[in-house]
């Protein structure tokens, strides 16, 4: 499929979407749409979105969708999946939802190896609330609540979520970090994550490095530079834990 085409699972009636120009969400959702299309699972998907910019995805797809509360998308999808295991549960959230207010849910879902796909969009800031410091803000990054730049001595170092959960993930788990700068590869990671669930192997956690030019106050060139240089330096794009490594069907990675 061409990168320019709209995935089948996208809902045309709600396009153009509501994300800011230059926002990475559209690209993450494109990668997800591609993965859902390839696996032909639209009928079974339950897509849950969080609060923060991720909520704008509530009518984005031709997929059954529930927008929940900030940080609570993981337990919501876990509950649905446990009750109706034939559903394909996808929990979609930002770094605040995944690594701050909802981090206990992420950790415990990984511990239990719940058969769901968690997508955490990491744009190093709380975007919808106006650009506050996130657990993922880089050292020195200026935000509304760290106007002098994030100071690791008092505000700590950015959280590397996939590395954290990979350290204790159970057998069968799939943990990866992709980036909107490589949509095809991100789509592949998401596809593997979904496969993991379809084949009942374990949880999948895929972080997607993303962009927020609105709150970063960057132009197009600086936005991509920040994503591909500074963020990718701190947050390596790769698979951390994968039951798919041995028979890698697409030869990427």
């Amino acid at each position: 499929m061409s990168e320019l085409a709209m995935p089948r699972s996208w809902r045309r009636e709600t396009k153009p979407h509501k994300f800011c120009p230059g926002c990475g969400h559209g690209l993450v959702l494109k990668a997800l749409g591609m993965a859902v299309d390839r696996l032909e699972i639209a009928e079974r998907v339950l897509f849950g979105c969080d609060i923060g910019c991720s909520l704008l995805a509530w009518d984005f797809f031709n997929l059954d969708t529930v927008q929940t509360h900030h940080g609570r998308t993981v337990p919501f999808i876990v509950g649905a999946k446990r009750a109706r295991p034939h559903l394909i549960g996808i929990a979609y959230m930002g770094d605040g939802g995944g690594y701050a207010i909802g981090v206990q849910h992420l950790i415990n879902a990984v511990m239990r190896n719940d058969r769901i796909l968690v997508i955490i969009v990491n744009n190093t800031t709380y975007a919808m609330t106006g650009g506050q410091m996130a657990p993922t803000s880089l050292p020195g990054q200026k935000t509304e609540t760290s106007p002098g730049g994030r100071e690791p001595r008092t505000e700590g170092y950015p959280l590397r979520g996939p590395e954290m959960v990979a350290s204790f993930a159970a057998e069968g788990a799939y943990i990866a970090r992709g980036s909107v700068s490589h949509v095809q590869r991100l789509a592949l990671f998401l596809e593997r994550g979904l496969q993991n669930q379809i084949q009942d192997k374990g949880i999948a956690v895929v972080e997607a490095l993303s962009t927020c030019p609105t709150n970063w106050r960057t132009n197009a060139e600086d936005t991509w530079k920040y994503l591909e240089k500074e963020m990718a330096d701190y947050y390596p794009v790769r698979e951390f834990v994968s039951p798919w490594k041995e028979n890698n069907p697409r030869g990427v990675n």
Binding site: P75, K81, Q104
Partner: peptide, 18 residues
């Protein structure tokens, strides 16, 4: 679950799933 927030939202998930 890991706390009551999770218990509550997981219950909502179960209910919406039927």
């Amino acid at each position: 679950t890991e706390d009551e927030l999770s218990a509550g939202f997981a219950t909502l998930g179960g209910i919406m799933a039927g």
